[in-house]
């Protein structure tokens, strides 16, 4: 799952280094425009609805946490 998520995001945002840190939001790697773009790409690709309460820093700080969230939502 982690690899799939990374591939989708890399295709969508080639200029962002998603593996730069484990605190992507807190370190300012991701701004709100990128985050909303990521959400759109991931929900279209994996066919999940990401509810607004899942959009918190913990879930977006690393590719691992993103993958975990998608898996949880697919259940």
């Amino acid at each position: 799952m982690r690899e799939k998520v990374l591939a989708v995001l890399k295709e969508e945002f080639p200029e962002v280094d998603f593996e730069a840190s484990d605190a992507l939001v807190d370190d300012g790697v991701l701004d709100s425009l990128t985050i909303t773009g990521m959400i759109a790409a991931l929900s279209l690709e994996f066919g999940v609805i990401i509810p607004y309460e899942e959009i918190i820093e913990e879930n977006f700080n690393s590719i691992d946490s993103l993958a975990k969230m998608i898996e949880r939502l697919q259940k």
Partner: peptide
């Protein structure tokens, strides 16, 4: 940003339309 922009951009209908 928190109460209009973000909820709107991640709302399922907008994402479906985007798709």
């Amino acid at each position: 940003k928190d109460y209009i922009y973000m909820p709107l951009s991640v709302s399922p209908w907008l994402i479906r339309l985007t798709g």
